[in-house]
Structures are given as C-alpha cells and as structure tokens.
Simulated assay, not measured.
Amino acid sequence: MDLNGKVALVTGGASGIGLAVSRELLNNGSNVVVCDVNVDLARYLMEELLATFGKDRVLFIRTDVTKESDFEEAIQTTKNYFKRLDIVVNSAGIFDDIDWEPALEVNLKGVIRGTLLALKYMGKDNGGEGGIIINIASLASIDFYPTSPIYCATKHAVLALSKCFGMPFHYTRTGVRVVTLCPGVTSTPFLASFHTRLMSPSWMEPNRKLVNDLKESTPDVVARSIVRVICEAESGSVWVSEGGETYSVELPDRKSLKVLS
C-alpha cells in the first residue's frame, strides 16, 4: 500500500504508540484522524500536529472505544471529512488486572467494535474500497505471563479475532486486510504504572524480573514497524516489534481451519 493520500483512523492516538503511529503516518503522506477519550491531552497534541501538517491533513475526534455510537460516529465523520477511509489502527489499550472489567471493555471489546465497524465501512461487500485494519496486541498475545493473566487473556483474544478476520474466507469478500502487530516492552506512560496494577503486590518483583529480561523499544520504533506492516503485510499475518526488530511469526493452523482458506 502506498500511504500517500491515504486516510487513517488511529484509536488511542493522543499518547503512547497511538500518538507515534499518528505522527509516522502523517510523515509518510497519510491524512490522520486521531481518536482518543482524553480531550485535554489531545488539545496540546493537535496544536503541534496542525502547525506541522495543516488542518487539511489531521483531525481530532473525541472517541470512547467502549461506546459503539462514539466509534461509529468517528468513522462516519472521517468519511464525511476526508471522503474515504483506508486504514484503521486499533491502538487504544489500558492495563489494570485489579479493576479488570474496564480493561476488558477497552482492550478486547474496543478492538472488536473497531474491527467490525471498519469492515462495515471499508469492506467491498458493503460498497467500500477495501483497506487494512491493524490490531495492536502484545507479546502477551503469543506468550503467557503469569503475573498479568487478565491483560494476557485480552491480548490472546485480540490475536484470535484478527487471525480469524484476516483469513481468506473473509479477505476475499471484504478486501480488507486484518493484521496483528505485537509490540514488546515499550517505553510509554503505560509501562510506568504497569507494576502497580497487578493483582497482588507480591507479584511486583517477579514481574519486574520478567520485564527486565525483554528487549525494550520506543513508541517511535514501534510506529515505524506498524507503517512497514501496513505497507507489506499479508492479511492474517502476525508481526512482532521488539527491541528495534520487526518480524513476522508463524502460528500453527489446524487442518480443519485450512478448509475455509
């Protein structure tokens, strides 16, 4: 995919990986809709982006991904403003294994909503022109971390959702590639509070040891990985961005799944 002139919608776009992705897409010629629930944070961000890229290329829409109406209105506004939608990056996410139900709403249900709505508005079977959905999972979607079972469960589910919708069974009908990007440890505000939201204080030290053994990246590095994936990844593929490296991973498929390929 040539990114120049394309229109991308990025959830969680006002901070962390989402912000870095928004900037990277703009730097590569795309028009970007930044969706985030944090209006105060977005206000300062938009001042910067508008000054750098101009009002014709970037738009902010307050979006709560836990609300279907918010999400659909954001997509409709995007299509009305830019007259198209080519890329949806479901990046919004939180970590809270203590008060875990909001994490489930954002990390899993938010991605499900974003995926279904993107397919509805971009799918060729619905009159759209196709496109790509990037669902941000985590290394926790292809591994198992005993100190963060709820977070791990949501990310495994995101991977399963993306793999299913990315298969030829759906892609041949919709023309929408669905791809999973699994960042490793990334230096965001999310990471700074990670240890405090574990189910038990006694898990903090084992969790630190686990995280310290992983390669750390910056949001900008992950954003460059996402842009690469948007440009070249096959539908249904799973990619890792870890310690400055970007690579695809093969997951075993049961023979029964290949029947619908």
Rank of each mutant, 00 (worst) to 15 (best):
A51D: 15
K124V: 10
T188C: 02
P189Y: 03
D2C: 00
L49H: 11
M204E: 14
E72F: 01
L214V: 05
E47R: 12
V58D: 08
N212Q: 13
M167V: 09
A160E: 03
I230W: 02
P102K: 10
V179W: 05
T63V: 08
N107C: 08
G243M: 01
A137D: 15
R173F: 04
G110K: 14
Y44H: 13
R113T: 15
S261D: 13
D213P: 09
P201F: 04
M204G: 03
I132A: 10
N27P: 00
N207L: 04
I133F: 08
G110T: 12
G128P: 09
L257H: 14
A14D: 02
N107V: 05
V179I: 07
Y121S: 01
K163W: 06
F165W: 07
L191R: 12
W203A: 14
C164L: 14
P102E: 13
I230C: 07
R228T: 12
E216V: 15
L45F: 05
L191W: 11
H156I: 08
G244Q: 07
V259A: 15
P168G: 05
L139F: 03
G16C: 03
S22R: 01
A92P: 01
G93Q: 09
E232W: 00
E47D: 13
E24I: 02
E68P: 04
F194I: 11
V111L: 14
C152W: 01
D36F: 08
I142N: 00
G184I: 05
Y171M: 13
I226C: 05
Y151T: 03
I112H: 13
I87G: 01
Y145E: 06
G175L: 02
V21L: 06
V227P: 04
L45T: 15
G12W: 06
K163D: 12
A51S: 15
P252R: 09
L59H: 06
S148I: 08
N126H: 15
L45I: 13
A14Y: 02
A14P: 02
S162I: 07
E234W: 09
A223S: 06
L117I: 13
V249R: 08
K120F: 04
K55Q: 14
Y171V: 12
L139Y: 02
V238M: 05
S69Y: 07
A51G: 14
F165M: 09
A223W: 04
L139C: 10
S235H: 08
N126Y: 13
G114H: 04
V249Q: 09
A192C: 06
A137G: 15
T196V: 04
G236M: 11
F71L: 13
Y171E: 12
Q76I: 15
R224D: 04
N27G: 12
V88S: 06
F190S: 06
I112Y: 14
N90C: 05
L59W: 03
A157H: 02
C35G: 13
S217V: 01
V89Q: 02
E242Q: 12
V21C: 07
V240Q: 01
D125I: 07
L25P: 07
E105I: 04
V21W: 06
Y151P: 01
I134H: 08
S237Y: 07
F82R: 00
I133L: 10
R23G: 00
R23D: 07
L116H: 07
E216Y: 14
L181T: 14
T180G: 06
L181A: 15
N212L: 09
S22C: 10
L85C: 06
S225A: 15
L49R: 08
V238P: 10
T77F: 03
N38F: 02
D220W: 01
A140Q: 11
